[in-house]
């Protein structure tokens, strides 16, 4: 089960996250699994793989927004980097960044036993 301590240990900025949730720990913690919902990540990866940079940007942007709100810094950072590259329609190999995002997601799932 995800806890504040686990999130801290993971590298999340729980102070910020909690502030946005009016210091309601349960509420904050309840939102975490939604941010890890596999579908959003799959959508991003599929778009990137297909070279559909517009859809990829939309998906990355949406994901980044949620991760930012919950202050899940370790996933947020690569997601943000990817969003900016996609915004500029940068033609590059997105696979390493995508992998980083998957890895960080998985790390939190493992730590929290989700």
């Amino acid at each position: 089960m995800v806890t504040i301590n686990i999130l801290k240990e993971y590298g999340a900025n729980t102070e910020e996250g909690l502030e946005r949730c009016l210091q309601d720990e349960d509420f904050y913690l309840d939102l975490i699994p939604s941010a890890l919902d596999k579908e959003s990540y799959d959508a991003l990866e599929a778009a990137v793989k297909a070279g559909d940079l517009d859809s990829a940007f939309d998906a990355a942007h949406a994901l980044k927004g949620v991760l930012a709100n919950l202050a899940l810094t370790p996933i947020y950072e690569p997601a943000s980097e990817m969003t900016e590259l996609l915004r500029a329609r940068t033609k590059t190999d997105y696979a390493p960044l995508m992998q980083k995002i998957w890895d960080e997601r998985q790390r939190l799932i493992d730590m929290a036993g989700l």
């Binding site: 946005r20 949730c21 009016l22 309601d24 509420f27 939102l31 939604s34 941010a35 949406a62 927004g65 949620v66 709100n69 919950l70």
Partner: peptide, 13 residues
């Protein structure tokens, strides 16, 4: 807002 997490956070605020 399309993201459920963001909806819930605004709802909370």
């Amino acid at each position: 807002e399309d993201e459920s997490v963001n909806q819930q956070m605004l709802g909370k605020i």
